[in-house]
Write a protein that binds this DNA or RNA. Sequence first.
RNA 1: GCGCCAGUAGCUCAGUAGGAUAGAGCAGCAGCCUUCUAAGCUGCGGGUCAGGGGUUCGAAUCCCUUCUGGCGUGCCA
Length: 549
Amino acid sequence: MIKQLLSNNIIEALDTLKLSHEKEFTVEIPNNPEFGDYSTNAALVLGKENKQNPMQLAEKIVKELKKNKAYKKVEIAKPGFINFHLAPSLYQQVFWEIYKNQEYGSSDFGNGEKVLLEFVSANPTGPLNIVSARAAAFGDTIYRIMKYVGYNPAREFYINDAGNQVDILAESLELRLREIHGEKIGEFPYEAYHGEYVKHLAHRLNALEGTRVFMMPEKDRLEHLKEFALSELLEMQRNSLEKFGVVFEGWVSEKTLRSEGVVEEVLSYLTEADCTYEKEDAIWFCSTKYGDDKDRVLMKSDGSITYFVPDVAYHLTKIQRGFTKLIDIFGPDHHGYVPRIRAAFRALNYDDSILEFIFLQQVNIFESGERVKMSKRAGKIVTMDELISVVGKDAARYFFIARKANAHLNFDLELALKKNNENPVYYCQYAHARICNIIKKARSEKLFPKHFTKDMANKLTKPEELALIQKMADLPELLILIAVHREPHRLTTYLEELASLLHHYYERYQIVNPKSPALTHSRLMLLFTVKKVMGICFELMGISAPEKM
RNA sequence: GCGCCAGUAGCUCAGUAGGAUAGAGCAGCAGCCUUCUAAGCUGCGGGUCAGGGGUUCGAAUCCCUUCUGGCGUGCCA
């Protein structure tokens, strides 16, 4: 908010001086307070294009800027920085704006662009695991923030309910079912799904239908088992996500897509574009012509289709539905997949720059200081549900978004189990609860004003008060940056900084003081606004903002 | 072999997309509760930003290269 303001002032000054400003300059909060409240590199960056040395240029700009009374002091430093010291009145004015705005930080920056966020999209062959949980928290937070800054995003889950893996699932279920009926199945196949949940499914099916499945012809039987397993597991996944606060606008089934004939469509499009060929009884896509490092099989030699074809079809439906940015959030094992889907887009003459891929690196679970090895196939996984029941939704979501996407994430279960305050989410929530408590106390002592006024805002002059205002003023620009760069972790950093300033302020000043009601009102107004801003951040992260702890 | 990602304090990680003296939390040490929640605050110590070159007024950040770790390199998804 203030950065934008200063930036505009600098541009105005440059314009009146008839100086060019092609290159982008920045306004930032310097880490050394000696360099002022804000600082810009404008003169350094624009020196070249104006053919002046930075110091001279800075002097001209400063002379012009000094006409503005909002600045207590504007200085020039060494190579050509311009440092601003702001008058408290500017902070107070900004604070008043923040206070008045109920949806503070929101904007129309995204211009209503339709963005599709596809994430989780796990195989419906088991309970959701930790990586899916990370994807869910990450994708959902990006969704919330993009929406808040004016995009028109949608969340979508692509269900891989066709193909090889679900066949194996059905076979695994059948084996477990036979086991229940006392058949000796020998060693459980390596490829099959070993998880306990398959046994649970078998028992459930047995209770519902008994031996009826075994009377069916093999093909019908597997189909039946598949349908049963899929619907059960999908429901399970949906429940897990809902418990995690993640709801999808769309669930797109691969099976449905296939039955609508889009597979044939894509195949014929690619053939028409002359980029398929036959080799070894299979049909190939010559993706190498479009930047892939290897050609890809479209139709296997047994006549079945690879997952790639319906996936291309699925991405094309996104375009047909009017989305102009397609963001796929993937686990670390999918990056080899990018060149081939881009290749398909190019081959079919679609602009592949609307595709964007975000890769979340793996999550390592630590228990008793040791890494827990996980394998879905072997049934050794820590599920999303387990995690939530152990550490809670808030802590889980917070941890998952607190790291940037392409960094590994170490999750120490034991630490989380301790439920002590080593968790930064408590630090932030505690700050919020503290404010609520102070407000409660003020109300009980009849020191909470009926209305907050601009006069009250103007009494805030302590450095700690101005620091809180400065931090709050950062939020609108920050949210835009987060949306543009898809980096939700920066919101947790921000919230921790805001909470820290609040705790410091709390320790140093008494807020509710019957001896000076006027000052009490001003400070309550500040805390009330901090609480609102924190509440907005929590909401954007899908984390609760507790009134007391 | 090739491709992608990462390497910052003892540990977990930030670092405002090239800015000034690289920051937090935890762990360690020393302090602060008859006053609004001590789940908090104050102070101290801790660094060859993996190594080496380059680009420029200026590099943790961009380019090249080496090393280390993770992942990928299926007619699985």
